[in-house]
Computed example of a mutant assay.
Amino acid sequence: MLAKVEVKDSCSAWVLIGDLQVFLRIRGNRDPVSSSRSQLCDTMRLFLSIICIFSASITAGTGLQCQDCQNYASTDCTGSLAVCSGSATSCMAAVTVITSDNLSSSSIVKSCASYPQLCGVFYSITMGPIHLASKTECCATDGCNSGTPQLPPRDLTPNGVQCPFCIAEASSCTSTGNIDCTGSETRCITYSGGIYNGTQFEQKAFKGCTTENVCNVPAPPYPATLLQQGYQLSCTPGATH
């Protein structure tokens, strides 16, 4: 909230506080040399100064502050506090872990939560031997996103759904077989587009199993996620057996 003061004469002024415009005038003896009127004018000027200081304090104090950092090589990062825009009402921390056989790659992003639909979301995708899991947590106090979200243990119980599988560094890929889906991954996914690797976007195409929320809540593009603007994602029920 900003205050703007426009002095009309020695003892009156327009005060603009946000969208509220107020005219203040000291009424009394019109004699400009009147000591009582002079004191009142001094009081008004002091009052206006207090309004300006108070308004500046409101401006500095109302913005939520969140830890802001990224690390595309581990699940740990620490950054300075950043003031969120007026539309952000919470802070977020998102962890993503990709595993393939005995290898793994992790990343974490902490920032203001510009997309509240991602708050509290856990999802996973399986593309044959490659498994991706991600979890986002949100909170609503200054600097509250300093921790690291913990991924739940992977559920390898077959759920009876089969999906076509393929993966390629290209704009599309063709499946040569199906994989058995496990746990809560009950939908088949097809993806094409760029994925951020920490330094640049890499073109990827894949098919596999995924959790249903990936299909129901469209993910925003980078930097809110690792997905490049313009990506294509679709889901199908998959075959059951």
Rank of each mutant, 00 (worst) to 15 (best):
Q203M: 07
I189E: 06
A219S: 03
N197A: 04
T157M: 06
P164F: 06
Y196W: 11
C173Q: 12
V121H: 06
K204M: 00
L227F: 12
T174G: 06
P158M: 10
V214D: 05
P164L: 12
P153W: 11
T199Q: 05
V121I: 15
F165I: 10
L227G: 03
G198V: 11
E169G: 08
P218E: 15
I125V: 13
C144D: 00
G177S: 05
Y222A: 09
C139I: 14
L156V: 01
V214E: 04
N213D: 05
C209G: 05
G198Y: 00
S184A: 06
A133K: 04
L226H: 05
E169V: 14
C173D: 14
P158N: 09
L151Q: 13
G183F: 05
P129Y: 10
T210R: 12
D142W: 00
G193P: 03
G147A: 13
T136M: 04
Q228P: 01
P223N: 14
I179D: 07
T126L: 03
V161K: 08
T211Q: 07
I189D: 03
V217H: 05
Y191H: 09
S175F: 06
L132H: 05
T176D: 15
A133T: 15
G230C: 06
I167F: 13
N178Y: 00
P158F: 08
M127F: 10
C163P: 01
C139D: 11
G194V: 00
A224F: 02
C163S: 12
C181P: 02
I130V: 14
E137K: 13
I189H: 10
P149V: 12
C166K: 10
P164D: 11
S124C: 11
F122A: 10
V121M: 14
T126Q: 15
E202I: 14
E202T: 02
G160D: 08
G177H: 04
V214I: 14
Y231I: 00
S172L: 08
T176G: 07
Y123T: 14
P221L: 07
C163Q: 04
C138L: 08
T148S: 13
E185T: 02
P223S: 09
T182P: 10
S171R: 09
P223C: 09
S124G: 03
P153M: 07
T182R: 01
G198N: 03
S234G: 03
R187N: 14
L132A: 07
Q200S: 05
Q150S: 09
D142R: 13
I125Y: 07
Y123K: 13
L156A: 15
T186R: 06
L226A: 14
C173L: 01
P223Y: 02
C235P: 03
G160S: 01
C215P: 01
P152K: 11
Q229A: 10
S171P: 01
F122N: 15
N213Q: 12
P152G: 09
G128I: 15
T211N: 03
T174V: 13
L132W: 14
A224P: 00
G147S: 15
S192C: 08
S134N: 14
V217M: 05
N213V: 08
Q203C: 02
C181H: 12
S175K: 09
P221N: 11
V121D: 11
C209P: 07
N145V: 02
